[in-house]
Write a protein that binds this DNA or RNA. Structure first.
Lengths: 122, 122
DNA sequence: GGTTGTAGGTTTCTAAAAGTAACTTGATGA
DNA sequence: TCATCAAGTTACTTTTAGAAACCTACAACC
């Protein structure tokens, strides 16, 4: 070991910089179900712009988490898929997204309660 | 269920907006080891500014993931701790950070290989 | 042969967020 | 009297994200 993710010089922090990003998490999660094309990702992940998707995909490819494969169809189709490394990461992402889906009601209640407390204090 | 984290209107996306943030992940992870004071967090998580820490803590408190307790010492000390909800989330964050620490070498190698391929192509 | 459509992007411009550094408050010890 | 600490806030700058338009290449439609 000898690594400390709390240290800004630690390489694990760089990994976190890339992975601790909501778009990257969503893309990885989607690719966990199998290879997907560029425009399919863009259409399925609502709110994700072409520019940002393009950036996220490049970063994930550079990190060796996904592969990019272009097929000589007309027009060209490009498929993105998880690598072994990416699959192994994505296995850790799933629980996080499932937690978010399972607990958002509680979080919304907490927010309402917090906002009421703040309004009273003011 | 009926929830879809890929839909921008889904409340789970809001959760992801808050949790898919590297500083929040680091703060939650640190609080997983027990209550910590404001300045201790700031000192331990290198690169995290007071302003951003303050914002992150407020957001996590509003979401019901952490509690803020002020002690009438001089000067006042403030301790942050996980709630039950926060603990349950943090249990899912640990594996992600451990994965980052365990796999960063492979990622660095992938980056070097990618950069070499790109340089050749150009 | 001009228009429309598709896939996979890039470019440009603007708005929002993050980072930097200085300031605040109130008591305390040197 | 001056400096110090904790826990922030404020003002300013830089980076990033997001929206929207544009690009290339081909193909079918009419």
């Amino acid at each position: 070991m000898g690594y400390d993710v709390y240290d800004s010089g630690c390489p694990a922090r760089m990994v976190l910089d890339h992975v601790g990003d909501k778009w990257a998490l969503l893309v990885l999660h989607r690719l966990g179900q199998g290879p997907v094309r560029f425009n399919a990702l863009r259409r399925e992940i609502h709110g994700l712009s072409q520019k940002v998707l393009s950036q996220v995909l490049k970063r994930l490819e550079r990190d060796g988490l996904i592969t990019r494969e272009a097929f000589p169809t007309v027009p060209v189709t490009v498929e993105y898929a998880l690598t072994g490394l990416g699959e192994c990461l994505t296995a850790n992402v799933g629980p996080l997204l499932r937690w978010a889906e399972a607990n958002m009601e509680q979080i919304k209640l907490a927010q309402v309660a917090y906002d009421r407390r703040m309004a009273e204090a003011a």
